[in-house]
Design a protein around this nucleic acid. Sequence first.
DNA 1: CGGGCGAAGATTGTATAAAGTTTCGCCTGT
DNA 2: ACAGGCGAAACTTTATACAATCTTCGCCCG
Lengths: 235, 235
Amino acid sequence: MAAKTRQKPDAPDASDRVSRIREGVTAAILEHRLLPGTKLGEDEIGEIYGASRTLVRTALQQLAHEGIVNIEKNRGAFVARPTPADAREVFEARRLIEPTIVDHAIDAVSPTWLDRLGQHLAEEREAELRGDARASVRLSGEFHRLVAEMSGHSIYLGFLKELIARSSLIILLYRRHDTPACGTDHHAGIVTAIRKRDREVARAQMLSHLNEIEAELFLKDPAADELRLADVLGA
Amino acid sequence: MAAKTRQKPDAPDASDRVSRIREGVTAAILEHRLLPGTKLGEDEIGEIYGASRTLVRTALQQLAHEGIVNIEKNRGAFVARPTPADAREVFEARRLIEPTIVDHAIDAVSPTWLDRLGQHLAEEREAELRGDARASVRLSGEFHRLVAEMSGHSIYLGFLKELIARSSLIILLYRRHDTPACGTDHHAGIVTAIRKRDREVARAQMLSHLNEIEAELFLKDPAADELRLADVLGA
DNA sequence: CGGGCGAAGATTGTATAAAGTTTCGCCTGT
DNA sequence: ACAGGCGAAACTTTATACAATCTTCGCCCG
């Protein structure tokens, strides 16, 4: 039979080496340890993960497709530097998609999911309490990802993963104050609405949550070059 | 200065060899010349395009990320075979995104764009008139892509490219009748609404257009295994 | 003293070869 | 005759070597 040495049809995040590299770099970017514009040399990363350039290249190409890395021909890979225009597009897309995602998540409400949501909120609160900015940033994004997983729509989930990754870079570049993370309270409110299966409130809360995140940003128009210089000088 | 040897920020479809392979295979899939389930051997494709397996592999990985190719570990790449559940997700996403895209396209109305739209409609009519099913399928998808380009939103454009590619496979697998292509008339109606800058009508027309396409499909629930067997036996 | 040219070094792009896995045919044993 | 397992062939995966390109630094000229 063919079903002898069958493993899971597709591992959730494939524990192969390419995925380990991709997730490692992604985490570093999302936790703001790798700043936009940073050069990602192939040999450099390969040595860190003990992998050949072939695998590193594959991982970087995937990240480029996700939009958090730019690959310039014959120059290499760099952490992406979203422009204000990109930022507006990303948040517009999130405002369009995420209310719908919450709506679908409510169709999947179950004790198991509510448990996972509650557990996540606890983690967020704890990270915020101990002032761990990196963990807060990561967990804040993971909350939205969790809701998307709950919705069961793989297309929306894929789109949102991309949008969340880009949002993390955008928030790093353009936030006004040093607001640690965007409203854990908002997340709690959304979970409450989900628990009550109140679609309208859930959608509205998600929308206003996204609006408040974007309102915290300073998206001036001709900022790209200025910021580039400022960053380089700051480094 | 850093801005000395700057070329175009990003070539439209990068005339490098990887892109040529990717576009060639994509066209073959979108025109229904490569059927779902077909094995895409690396040597095979490499020989066709006179390229090494390295480049073929890169192209196939990009196609896998776009969702029209599945890569099974240690087995190779195959043309994707969307399930009915996938199909419903794809069309739901299109119903969510495309009305918004049309709305934004209206912001960009200009003689140049109206000209391009009109020219496209002419091509579609011509292909349909001469019964060229392959060209009709391709052009039908390209219409939606054109509107997305017109909207100027690169995020939506990227998402829609993926959705269109998957839609083409879905229509091939699940269409009821041998309807040649889905409503060139619908496209003409949408263009008219765009020309009049009538947002509400444009959104409504796009929505009903998508609904009619999906209504032409036969999305039975437990079809996956049946279809796989049937196809294999038929081949 | 500033600017441009040029060669050396470094880095990426591509191809080829080695290693591991799956698959299919064939052979043996019952 | 048929089930089960062994083995070879084909393919994918990974690593390494080579070629092309860009960057950098030094030097020369104006």
